[in-house]
Design a protein around this nucleic acid. Structure first.
Lengths: 174, 174
DNA sequence: AATGAAATCGACCAGCA
DNA sequence: TGCTGGTCGATTTCATT
């Protein structure tokens, strides 16, 4: 029951190296990976499959550029709700189901939800906020525009703290 | 110079259908895709390549489960800076470079940056906040814990508003 | 857990509508 | 420009260690 209880099975440094590579770019060939890691192609393939089976790799996905869709406007909206207990899960599901909403966080604090959404125009944002306010239980919203985004490509394996890395490599097999 | 100016080239409904599918799961075989879309394997492949060349598909990536790394704690940190102008880009780069930080948004409003980070323990979060405060120009921070996340798998194509969809399909070729 | 060989699937090309 | 069908190369699978 410590901070690492859900780790699927022991990951070694080779697994981390593979993850750091494919989390950023899965289009790399098995041959290139095998050379970089000094392993046979089959061994790399075997480890990738194991990582998928273990759920460490949840899925392989295409990363679509929102700008290619004209989605140039990002907003962060704080949402407070009326009944604070019990309904939060339902309201979270309602929020994430709204077209244009990308991420929803339920937080401790004076605002209950932080909602990040992406749209084309200010009109679309106004419309989205109307659709948020229409959700039963939503009390008040307050939005701010994002001027600039700094992103990470979601490369979790390459982005963990040193302490977290130690903790992962120290795990033994289930 | 309208809201859709950066759209790479005209996308049709077939492209959108392909994107909706592969943005969620790129592990689907060409054959399955071809059957689902009533197209030949080569045609699907041709369109996928075009979408990559156009930059609509930025990359293909492995989606790693943060819980598999014991990263159970998410925090949203508001960061205000001392010199409001000029240095914002530098500070944003500094923030995103910190281990544990996933996303950074530079906003209009009383807080300047919204930082979303993911760590294993409260100690690691404290350490991360120390590393944020140490950045030159950072004035004040205020963090809240995330109790629950609602996520979208970042499926942009399946998540655009109807208005945005109309706007995209209505485009003509450059 | 890793290997090499055999079967399957995806990438690429020339040509066509 | 978008698509087809075929070839080649890469990936997946499997028996074996």
């Amino acid at each position: 029951m410590n901070g690492t209880r859900r780790i699927a099975s022991s990951l070694d440094e080779m697994d981390l190296a593979i993850l750091e590579r494919v989390e950023d770019d899965f289009d790399v060939s098995l041959e290139t990976l095998a050379e970089e890691l000094d392993l046979s192609k089959s061994a790399v393939h075997y480890r990738l499959n194991k990582l998928k089976d273990n759920g460490v790799i949840r899925s392989v996905t295409a990363d679509v550029d929102p700008l290619a869709f004209g989605l140039e406007m990002v907003a962060i909206t704080d949402v407070s709700v009326t009944h604070e207990t019990g309904y939060s899960e339902d309201i979270g599901e309602e929020l994430i189901a709204r077209q244009g909403v990308e991420q929803v966080y339920y937080t401790m604090g004076d605002v209950d939800f932080v909602v990040i959404s992406r749209v084309q125009t200010r009109d679309q944002l106004n419309d989205l906020i109307d659709r948020i306010v229409a959700i039963d239980g939503v009390n008040e919203t307050s939005s701010k525009f994002v001027m600039q985004e700094f992103e990470n490509n979601r490369t979790i394996a390459a982005n963990i703290t040193d302490a977290a890395r130690e903790s992962i490599l120290g795990m033994s097999t289930d």
